[in-house]
Amino acid sequence: MAKLEPYSPTPAARAGRIVMTVTPFVIGIVCVLLSFVPFGRIVGSPLTPAFPLMAIYYWAIVRPEMFPPLAVFAVGVLFDLLSGGEIGLWAFVYTVTYAVVVTQRPVVVNAPFSAFWIGFAVTAAFAGALAWVIVSVIHGLIVPPGPVFWHMAVTVAVFPIFAMLFGRFETRVLSGG
């Protein structure tokens, strides 16, 4: 009778597993830091896209098991700490948005890119509206919706570029192809 050998992963498999666990956090942190790099100054505009939202949406649809809720929450908290705004605002908005996207995943998961993009536009609108409502409630006044509208519009506009980059990363690194 064959004896069952205890499974011991090779160092390469172990390294691969570490990469798989750490990758979402690293991507999330890079996206948060990118949000604070003053790209807008090149063209003289204070607008910056919501890079973390792109990462959250992409990974929630394509590989939710790679981007767990803990990573989403951590990304949101880091963003809040760096931004100097309300603590927990983006942590809450991103986690709620992630929850909504994960539940609606079957709608866009195998759809063409245009549907994937429209899905992102709806997600960005939802996240922007939620954040706007929370900030308005916290400050007890109707905050001008213009800045958050443009913020999300820019995010939706540049999303295809980042979706392509994430896609490349996914096929090259994570799929091992």
Binding site: P68, L70, F73, V77, D80, I87, G88, L89, T95, V96
Partner: peptide
């Protein structure tokens, strides 16, 4: 379960942060 936990934590943080 993790999602529900994180949602609760985020809501708590939003309230506690103030």
């Amino acid at each position: 379960i993790s999602l529900i936990f994180m949602l609760t934590l985020a809501a708590a943080l939003l309230l506690l942060g103030r």
